[in-house]
Design a protein around this nucleic acid. Sequence first.
RNA 1: GCUCCCAUCGACUAGUGGUUAGGUCGCCACCCUUUCACGGUGGUAGCACGGGUUCGAAUCCCGUUGGGAGUACCA
Length: 484
Amino acid sequence: MVRVRFAPSPTGMLHVGSLRSGLYNYLFARHLGGTCILRIEDTDQTRYVEGAEQNIFEMFRWTGIEFDEGPHVGGPHGPYRQSERTDIYRVHAQMLLDRGTAYYAFDTAEELDRMRERQKAAGVAPKYDRTSMRNQFTLGEEETRRLIDSGTPWTIRLFVPLTGETRTSDLVRGESVFPNKTIDDQILLKSDGYPTYHLANIVDDHLMEITHVIRGEEWLPSLPKHVILYDAFGWEKPQFAHLPLLLGPTRKKLSKRDGDVSVAEYLQKGYLPEALVNFVALLGWNPTADREIFTVEEMIAMFELEKVNKAGAIFDLEKLNWMNGMYLRQMPIERLAGDVLPILARAGFGNVEMIYAEAVVDLIKERITTLNDIPTFADYMFGPIRCIDFAYAQKHWKAGTQEQVAEMAGRFARLNPAEWTVSMIEGVVRGYAEELGLSAGKLIHPLRLAITGRQVGAGMFETMVVLGQGTSITRLREFTGPAV
RNA sequence: GCUCCCAUCGACUAGUGGUUAGGUCGCCACCCUUUCACGGUGGUAGCACGGGUUCGAAUCCCGUUGGGAGUACCA
């Protein structure tokens, strides 16, 4: 039985890269009928951000990705918050101490800084120097005991052999070999009693019976440390799969500098969760080259780690926008209208009827990229015209136009309410155009101008139907040409 | 600097020795048309470079170059 985990640290809003990692874990587990767990890695007291954990839960709920075990749902391997497991890590650190694969160190931050400066000056790679720093080996057992008993702050470091090499294996990248002399004696237990990622992660993955570790490529360089740790404990290793990074436009790891990187921002901007998930899924994984749009169910059915790419992928907003538009057009209208009411309210259009919102969304959904575009794209559907496209007005509002518009308003008024349909309105306009010997466009543009104030919009007759007979006629009668 | 990873159109990718190197986004043109979109059609553009291996390399090997990640008592 396959068990995977998504293990974010609550240090900020959930990142789109994290969303993808979580998604891949979820797809992988569901594909194989396994279990996907959520573990909160909150071992850094200094970076803890209030509300971050809540944001993780909320964003995954928004995207529909569910975890089988986690702090929010419980499970047989809890607690799922590392800050609640500190005793476990301490016991395991002691196990390593007993086996001689870890040791006490007493160096202060300043001493370590000086060590790195010396190494840098000497042109050597920065790495903890076991032979010259203050630790169990240089101080001796007795002094070590005395320091600990006297309350001197201490840490526990991983003992990495100076010779030999460590081999790693990765499902997407294959085998790699790391010279042991380049691997640092990583701190496992910090002086504040909390574990570092490396210890907590290995211990929890083992205790939680994780079979596959699927995580970002930024962890690849520390994989040998993890391999050494598993061996030090004498534990069987899970399989590893390091995912290609999500990149910004400059090909560097996607970060805040590159714009919106948190899932919450895309929610706020009116993107549909289905579109975001679909988009992010295809960054680094491709089930088949002839399709772009997939439901989560389809992705689950097709997901394979073997099809995950090695190279990083740029997060391209243009394609996300296109994809969101695709989803917008195929989404059930009721669902969209429900989402759009709060957006309208925020834009100052309160008291909009659900049925009316549905009609407007249906009218313009082909022309917008996100739901947030609605209040600005079609403000005239929710209140009086706010602005007039002057160039458009100049082009289509000529001498005599006023009278033609008035005539059409009169004819529209003669339609009974049941006749307020696209075909009837169109009939009136085209009929009148024929009488005048004009192309219909000569009349439609003035109509559009008087009713919407701008050039770009949905079909004119459809717009008038949604807007209603009374409002349409009123606008035609009250419009007296572009203000000068 | 050191360690590791990576390399197909501008972007996301298909391709696992023999293809006119395919698809999608973007861009351009045309069609549809009351505008803008949608939709349809066509087009633009790519195997980083150099050596091998092979009858034959985008595909395999080596090197170069380029890019990235890591190098914390952060994850």
